[in-house]
Amino acid sequence: MVFKDKTKLSVWERISDINWLRKLAIVVTLAALWQIYAIWLNNALMFPTFTATVNALISAFGNGELLERVLNSLKMLLIAYAIGAVLAITLTILSISTRIGNDILEVLTATLNPLAPVALLPLALLWFGLGAPSIVFVLVHAVLWALTLNIHNGFAGVSQTLRMVGRNYGLKGLRFVFLILIPAALPSILTGLKVSWAFGWRTLIAAELVFGVSSNSGGIGWFIFEKKNQLDIDFVFAGLLTVIIIGILVENVLFKTLEKRTVLKWGMKQ
């Protein structure tokens, strides 16, 4: 008789091993609980049902209103993100060449990183007035320090051996930074991009809630605020749901894919 060193798992075992399926089950359960509670409460002004929220979501996207708001928000964040990234890279490069530059950067990130971006709103209003520049200013602050901190830590963590390999090839200055330091620090840089995106996204919604009024067509935070004033509470929920969905898409789909194609593929991160 042949010894069987492999036995097939049962269908149920195989199904329960699928990660996304288990998580989907949790989401479905939460939605069901939401629906049951809302029906039992029977007060659409306080807590609309899940189905009402989904309907509001579909109609708000259907007439293009919500999509426009989302794009406005994303545009604002992308502008700030790009400015923040360029500033962070520049600051880090300027700092690594000298010890004092290094010290300055460490002090700057340590002092400014804990400063909640929204706390700068009053100042931003004073300096830039109502409108997009104020929001971008606050967002750049939200993005910049987390990113700088991570790029800086990433550079500091590049092994002496890799540095010597780069110098052995005669690489110096910016070529050394772009060909050796940045790719070698990519796990940290990606973490920085992820953290600062999450930080920026949360700050953006909060800032828009406070003064999204300014721009002629506000973002998604303003959408939520406006719908609450009009007592369209199902649309408020639809707005919140959109914030969550975009967050998940960027953090779990976009960044995950980016990691899979780079640092995970190269074995630089487990």
């Binding site: 092994s159 051996t161 890799l162 390999v165 052995n168 005669g170 790719p183 070698a184 190269w266 630089m268």
Partner: peptide, 17 residues
């Protein structure tokens, strides 16, 4: 300079990317 090529003991001397 590359006229003196170095092989190190550490395995992480290769560019992982």
């Amino acid at each position: 300079a590359p006229d003196r090529a170095v092989v190190f003991q550490e395995f992480d001397q290769l560019l992982p990317w």
